[in-house]
Design a protein around this nucleic acid. Structure first.
Length: 341
DNA sequence: CCTAGTTA
DNA sequence: TAACTAGGG
């Protein structure tokens, strides 16, 4: 879910053209989960191969990534490691919600309520260890780099961006800002249309850039204060305070300062988790500088072996994807030649 | 989500 | 050429 601070964040609309040549550290879990939940038939059934294994995540990953590469955008995918101990409660809650959604899905399907079934199927989507592994295999074959984070992927993506090894952290969630990412990129999609939740209306979607510096300037808060806002409204590590949304949290923070100042001033605030511990996770996340980021030529045989032979993808569609990857690779070598002129 | 074919 | 739709695995 991530921290809900959208209402106080300044958003700059961007475009795929503006992202040309830029490296984006993409939150792999966030992206794969989105594919898994959205790429489904009208009754909620995900794409599957002939052995019944789910392939929605592979479809989304392959087609979107080859498009980005063709456009000269350089994705590096960041995979989650072991979650921090404080996240276990959230993980447990999510597990329960998924199980309930799965029950509701089956019921709706039995009653012939297709739309209901789809809604609950999307809520019950679960990204497995195996799916992450398959995604890494595919990225390797495509010549696209990925990094295994020691803990949170969002934190590692933030670190790459701080290190200027990436231009932005790519995710739909805002957490990477709290982890210190100077720039966050949302809505990195190709077709630029998305169905509004619940309704049958399609809305135009464009990439959005959020600058941490601009956010700090506009709201007159530091990163520590942004973290305090997160803790007040709720993070993956705590439920937040009832009745406090981003606007009220912002006021509290502007009035008092960081989370420890707020604790002193507002003694009646009750936290289920020690706020100082949460602040520590965001300020000093477990990340590594031991990584490599480089793109290479795609391996068509490996891609076809994996997607077509193993998972029953259509060879002609995969071929156009491979062409896009190759086009991107030649674009890169052209650019590196030009650097030496 | 994205592709590819259809339609106006 | 854009808007729409069915189907992908």
């Amino acid at each position: 879910m991530g921290v809900q601070i959208k209402d106080i964040v300044p958003i700059q609309e961007s475009s795929l053209e503006q992202l040309q040549g830029k490296i984006i550290a993409i939150d792999a879990m966030n992206t794969l989960y989105q594919f898994l939940s959205i790429i489904r038939q009208s009754d909620g059934t995900p794409l599957k191969d002939s052995k019944g294994r789910i392939t929605s995540h592979l479809s989304g990953l392959f087609y979107r990534t080859s498009n980005l590469i063709e456009k000269g955008i350089r994705p590096v995918f960041i995979f989650d490691g072991e979650p921090p101990e404080l996240k276990s409660k959230t993980i447990e809650t999510r597990r329960t919600l998924r199980a309930e959604a799965e029950k509701a899905r089956k019921k709706a399907l039995k009653e012939g309520k297709e739309k209901e079934a789809l809604k609950y199927a999307q809520r019950s989507a679960r990204l497995t260890e195996e799916m992450s592994g398959e995604s890494k295999t595919l990225l390797d074959a495509m010549g696209v780099p990925w990094i295994q984070a020691p803990e949170e992927g969002e934190a590692q993506a933030a670190r790459l961006t701080q290190n200027e090894d990436s231009w932005a952290a790519g995710s739909q969630d805002f957490d990477s800002l709290l982890f210190g990412a100077p720039r966050l990129l949302r809505n990195l999609t190709i077709t630029g249309k998305r169905k509004l939740p619940g309704k049958d209306v399609y809305k135009e979607i464009v990439p959005e850039v959020i600058s941490l510096e601009k956010l700090s300037e506009e709201q007159e808060i530091t990163r520590e204060q942004l973290i305090a806002i997160g803790i007040l409204v709720g993070t993956d590590y705590n439920p937040g305070i009832k009745g406090i949304g981003p606007k009220r949290a912002l006021k509290l923070v502007q009035e008092h300062g960081t989370i420890s100042d707020i604790l002193e001033a507002e003694e009646d605030l009750e936290f289920e988790v020690d706020p100082i511990e949460i602040e520590e996770i965001f300020l000093e996340p477990n990340v590594t500088d031991d990584y490599e980021v480089s793109w290479s030529e795609p391996n068509p045989d490996a891609i076809k072996e994996f997607l077509c032979e193993e998972h029953d993808f259509s060879e002609s569609r995969i071929n156009t994807g491979i062409e896009r990857l190759e086009k991107g690779a030649s674009k890169r070598s052209q650019e590196s030649l030009e650097k030496w002129v």
